[in-house]
Amino acid sequence: MSEQSTMTGPPVGPSGASSGGAGLSPRQRRNISRGVQYAVFVVLAALVVSWADWAAIREHFLDMKVAENLFPEIFTIALKNTVIYTVSGYVLGFFLGLVVALMRLSSAAPNRWIALVYIEVFRGLPAVLVFILLGLAVPTAFPGIRFPFDEYGVVAIALGLVSAAYMAETIRAGLQAVPRGQMEAARSLGMSYSRAMITVVIPQALRIVIPPLTNELILLFKDSSLVFAIGVTSATSELTKFGQDIATEYADSTPLLLAGATYLLITIPLSIVVRRLEARQAKAR
């Protein structure tokens, strides 16, 4: 695969135009390399297509009779719950993450330690484990505890706890990216540390981290599927669980495919937004 060609004849100067074995120019060699890559893609695609059992696929993944049964609940219940879980977890995670990020940069050492332990623990644990612990273990440890809004509360808190750890690190990086002179200018105008943070530093930091925080929203959107770990009713089920349940009921995979497509309906536009935001920031710099 090396682009470097060995010298086979007498030195021909730095241009290297004729240094290829067959006397090809760099452009010609690049075109050949591209052609080989495309050929490999085409062959692989052809293999997959010829291998697949199209009749079985049509029956098990694209069964319109089964698909009919998904509507309108796939939107009115499943997507709605997915969005509720994601947004409530995200909002909670954002504010908790902001607090942890500020603690991480605090001049008081205990604040920094607590923030660090929090981040390491919740970044290190699988999200599904946090769901199980929160849904099953916490009620055992604290008898009589009730989460607000039942499953919705548990999911919001679990997603919030996990995403806060990631968002804290992102927000911390954003806070540190704001030049020190901003804090100094604010303090020299008589603002207290917290006033300067709220008025001057945090707004600039958040602007910087909007793209990575939107990415976190996409991740969370998918993580909301982990709610299955605590068991949900048909009224509180979200896209993955919803698709899985109906797929089991009809012994057919069409619902899974549709559930997947519904995720993409949300995540792809979000990704486009992130790319736009990143491009805008790159231009502003």
């Binding site: 002179g181 105008l189 008589g190 008025t199």
Partner: peptide, 26 residues
């Protein structure tokens, strides 16, 4: 510090505020 104004080499204006807002905020 309210009684002491400071002007910096790098200006340190608040980039997310207009000139007027910069002068009003404090």
């Amino acid at each position: 510090r309210r009684r002491v104004g400071m002007v910096f080499q790098q200006f340190n204006l608040f980039p997310h505020m207009t000139a007027l807002e910069n002068v009003m905020i404090a």
